Amino acid sequence: MKLPSPPLRHLALLALPAAFLLGSPSQASDETASAVFAGGCFWCVEEAYDKVDGVTATTSGYTGGHTENPTYRQVTAGGTGHAEAVKVDYDPERVDYETLLYVFWRNVDPFAEDRQFCDKGASYRSAIFPMNAEQRALAEASREAMAERFDREIATEISDFDAFYPAEEYHQNYYAENRVRYNFYKSACGRVDRLEEVWGEEASASTAP
């Protein structure tokens, strides 16, 4: 069964020029490390990590599935196995992976299964995609810490990283370039309220204490 595209996302995408329908991959510097996180709408995840000191670039895209070079429509319709995700390029001398994990958790609802906030479907699941053994060990330790903290099951997945496909160009930096439509979507989706309900003063953190 195919999932319908979320109405709020459709509203936020209205009036985009047709010229934006084709995207191009972002290239990371050889001097940076990379991490991949899925936390529902990649616009929101991109905004969260752009605020982190030491992050050098963020790219919205798709990962965790079996379809090569998927489109936004394919991913949100279901069947590709992919999740909306963000590749975070960062300077390890300025920020470490543990800090990125701290930021990740406080920008997701860790109890929601196959959805985040108003966006429903497996493409909006929360997940961490470790790119090496060290990242996996840290990711698993962080999820165990979350389970202990809340004393309940954590729905967020930890999945092996395979490939990352950059999303169409009009999705990149959407939150900054389409501020009015983005803020309407983010507010109506209930993201801020739910994060505050789960995390209190730690909600939407951009750094570790």
Rank of each mutant, 00 (worst) to 15 (best):
P110L: 11
G78A: 04
W199S: 09
A203I: 12
R143E: 11
R136Y: 03
T71W: 02
E197A: 09
G190I: 09
R179F: 04
T67G: 06
N132M: 11
V86M: 06
R181A: 03
R73P: 00
R179I: 13
D96P: 02
A203L: 02
G121S: 02
A147D: 10
Y175A: 12
E157P: 09
N107F: 13
A155Q: 04
A176N: 05
A122Y: 14
N173A: 13
E157Y: 12
A155L: 10
T156Y: 03
L195N: 15
L100F: 09
K87Y: 05
R143C: 05
A137E: 00
A77L: 14
E197Q: 06
R106V: 08
S187T: 15
D151A: 13
D89T: 09
Q172F: 04
T80D: 03
T80E: 10
Y97P: 08
S187Y: 15
G121E: 00
D91S: 02
D114Q: 14
Y175C: 07
P110T: 11
S187Q: 11
A77M: 10
F117L: 00
A112V: 09
Y90S: 06
P130R: 02
T99R: 09
E196P: 12
H66V: 14
G121T: 02
G81V: 11
E144Q: 14
D193F: 11
D89V: 09
L101P: 03
T80K: 05
Y175N: 00
G79N: 03
I128H: 13
H171R: 08
P130S: 13
G121Q: 06
R136E: 11
Y185M: 07
K186Y: 03
A163W: 01
E177F: 12
K87N: 14
E202F: 15
F104N: 11
N107V: 07
F104C: 10
A145M: 08
Y185H: 07
W199H: 12
E144S: 14
E98Y: 08
A205L: 03
A77I: 10
E153W: 02
A83P: 08
F184C: 09
S204M: 15
Y175T: 06
A205K: 04
F104D: 09
A155S: 08
K186E: 08
F184M: 13
L138H: 11
A137I: 03
E140T: 07
L100P: 06
N69A: 00
N107H: 01
W199N: 08
D89A: 15
D151C: 03
L195V: 06
Y97I: 07
S206T: 13
A176K: 06
R143T: 05
S159L: 13
G200A: 10
I158G: 01
H82I: 02
A205M: 03
H171W: 11
N173I: 13
G121F: 04
E157G: 01
F117C: 00
R179Y: 11
V95Y: 01
E93A: 06
R181M: 07
F161N: 05
A147P: 05
M131N: 01
D160F: 05
E153N: 02
R152S: 02
S159Q: 14
Q172D: 06
Y174P: 10
E202R: 15
S187D: 12
F117Q: 06
F104H: 01
C189L: 08
S204C: 10
V75L: 06
L195I: 12
Q116A: 12
D193S: 15
Y97M: 07
Q135E: 07
A85N: 07
F164Q: 01
M131E: 12
A133D: 13
F164R: 00
V180F: 12
E144C: 08
Y165G: 01
E196T: 14
A112C: 00
R181E: 05
